[in-house]
Design a protein around this nucleic acid. Structure first.
Length: 593
DNA sequence: GCCGTTTTCGGCCCGACTGTTTTCAGTCG
């Protein structure tokens, strides 16, 4: 869990993640205190709302303008305003006086919830994992009411696991595992339908576990097969309808085996998100129907007709909704849009006609210009932009002026060998230097077809400086697009501090495109910002940041994130066919020269 | 604490599994 100490933070440092974390921790402490569960849920919902809100929530909070945000009512809005404007929240500080901060780590142990933590805390003063381990190993814990040998063993297992694994995986790291398991499940003779569900199906950038749903007449057979498959390192749960295992890689996989009739409901339920499910269920209730993971049934006393549901899409129609793509199921307005017939037609991988941010052996790539061009053509792309690093990225063998001019020349020559249905564009991934100036002079930039501007150093600049630095690049007339806006490396490096909304507005004003970097380590700009960017009129460009031919297929992850960001074909510039892209790039250069 | 075709009070999603019980509480998703 991220460490947060808002009391000790300067207020300018507060981020939306800090806000969400404070609300979540309030919920945990209220749970320990045995507070009203609905109040606890309200804080969790508030945290969720804070995280998914499309806009500069921190500024809104500071200016006390949080009204009208779903999930944030008067009480939480006032508390967030206090936190944003003073760096403190009295309610939170009073609450945390009761328990040491280290108690939060106990919630990360599987099998331990608020009740048991409270019992351990009251009985033995357990307030850290270290202390927890002591009382479990000494046998004291097993003697508590409600505890026994097995639950203590489970807790110790949980502690051991936590010590060896972080427990979060990148989408790109699990994609091939999912395909393999799914293929095997589908090949089983007792399987009639099988899908991956959960956050993987929704295309979340990271996942905590993998969920599978199988339709079968022989659930026990399927569960047995799943639990004894060669990939299983450990069986965690084994029932008549559900089995949870841990793979050798460490990730947990849950399988649900249901009847064919239950399947659409189970698939929908286990796809989530939880918030989306809750919203669907309340919508069903308003129609006199109760929705669970097995069926849609009339509530007691209701005369409501229950429509036939054979597939997931029938379920949405039964609730008077257009079918909602899994990528959109985050309860960020998709249900309302589906009810109004306002869902976007989402961009698809087959819509992409080319892509721009790619490297070759000239800088830090592994494949040649020719090989990359050939790979792009094999993927069916009409154009490929080459944007190797600029000279300041010496760690990446960045090109100096001479080498870049030679590469431009090589690209022009290679283009003469292609038919008119494919073209390389000559670009550069130009470093945005510390002061916001670019790594090449305007004359050289003017010789390029396009420019990707990216930050590759001085990540630790304060937010105001970093924002000003990137703004200067955005406003540079030769910059076509902004590369990986926040520089994050998922599960490894935090995004750098930058006012994203300010950058979005500047890009809207100057017509600068924003990259959706599709490398599964980056997926940057984050999907949560794209809806806002689209509304402000910013165009997205989906780039793989490929350093070898095979990485051109990262585009798939980028498209998934674009879909999560509600983007349509017309919002993504590299859906333009070659002819129109030539014109667009030429017009851009002319307009800003 | 939030929210509203249930509208300023009263409801808020709900089932499976586990372990500890002997009819159920806690946890999880």
């Amino acid at each position: 869990m991220q460490k947060v100490s808002p009391g000790g933070k300067r207020r300018m440092d507060m981020t939306r993640e800090d806000f969400a974390e404070v609300l979540r921790r309030i919920a945990l402490l209220l749970e320990l205190k045995g507070e009203n569960p609905f109040k606890i849920r309200a804080y969790r919902n508030g945290a969720e709302a804070v995280e998914t809100f499309s806009g500069d929530l921190v500024t809104l909070a500071r200016e006390n303008r949080l009204d009208g945000i779903k999930g944030i009512g008067d009480a939480i809005a006032a508390k967030l305003h206090e936190l944003a404007s003073t760096g403190r929240m009295e309610f939170w500080e009073k609450l945390r006086e009761n328990f040491p901060d280290s108690i939060f780590e106990l919630f990360e142990i599987g099998g331990l919830g608020p009740k048991k933590i409270k019992a351990l805390y009251d009985a033995f003063g357990v307030d850290s994992i270290e202390r927890l381990k002591e009382v479990c190993e000494s046998g004291e814990a097993a003697a508590l009411p409600g505890f026994g040998q097995k639950s203590v063993a489970k807790i110790l297992d949980g502690i051991a696991y936590r010590e060896s694994h972080v427990g979060i995986w990148r989408l790109g790291d699990v994609a091939s595992i999912v395909s393999e398991i799914l293929e095997t499940l589908r090949a089983h003779p007792a399987t009639s339908r099988a899908d991956a569900a959960g956050s993987f199906r929704r295309g979340k950038e990271t996942v905590r576990d993998l969920d599978f749903v199988v339709a079968t007449k022989h659930p026990l057979e399927i569960l047995e097969f799943f639990a004894t498959a060669p990939w299983v390192a450990e069986v965690l749960v084994r029932g008549d309808t559900k089995c949870s295992i841990r793979l050798a890689e460490g990730i947990q996989c849950d399988l649900r085996a249901v009847s064919n009739a239950n399947y659409p409901f189970a698939l929908n339920y286990f796809t989530g998100s939880k918030e989306h499910n809750v919203a669907l269920r309340s919508r069903a209730l308003k129609r006199g129907l109760s929705l669970n993971e097995y069926a849609l049934t009339p509530v007691e006393g209701s005369q409501a007709e229950v429509p036939d549901v054979f597939e997931e899409r029938d379920l949405y129609r039964a609730l008077g909704l257009d079918v909602i793509d899994p990528a959109l199921r985050e309860n960020t307005g998709e249900i309302e849009a589906a009810a109004e017939g306002d869902l976007p037609t989402l961009v698809e991988l087959v819509n992409l006609r080319g892509t721009f941010h790619n490297h070759t052996t000239a800088s830090d790539g592994c494949d040649s210009l020719e090989a990359m061009a050939e790979a792009a053509q094999e993927l069916g792309l009409q154009y490929l932009g080459i944007a190797d690093h600029s000279k300041s990225s010496f760690q990446a063998n960045g090109l100096n002026e001479t080498r870049l001019r030679a590469q431009i020349e090589a690209i022009r020559r290679l283009n003469e060998t292609f038919d008119d249905d494919f073209q390389l564009f000559a670009g550069s991934e130009v470093d945005i230097l510390r002061d916001g100036s670019l790594d090449f002079d305007d004359a050289l930039l003017g010789e390029l077809d396009y420019v990707v501007a990216s930050v590759h150093n001085a990540f630790q600049l304060p937010e105001a400086e970093m924002t000003a630095r990137i703004l200067r690049a955005v406003e540079h007339p030769r910059v076509t697009m902004l590369g990986h806006l926040t520089g994050r490396l998922l599960l490894q490096r935090e995004p750098y501090a930058v006012k994203i909304e300010t950058i979005i507005d500047a890009c809207a004003r100057t017509g600068t495109w924003i990259e959706l970097n599709s490398n599964p380590w980056r997926l940057d700009m984050d999907w949560r910002w794209w809806k806002l960017a689209r509304e402000r009129g910013v165009k997205c460009v989906i780039n793989p940041d490929a350093h070898r031919c095979a990485e051109l297929e990262y585009l798939h992850f980028g498209v998934l994130q674009a879909r999560k960001g509600w983007l349509r074909r017309q919002d993504v510039v590299n859906c333009l066919p070659l002819g129109m892209m030539r014109e667009t790039l030429a017009a851009k250069r002319l307009a800003r020269s």
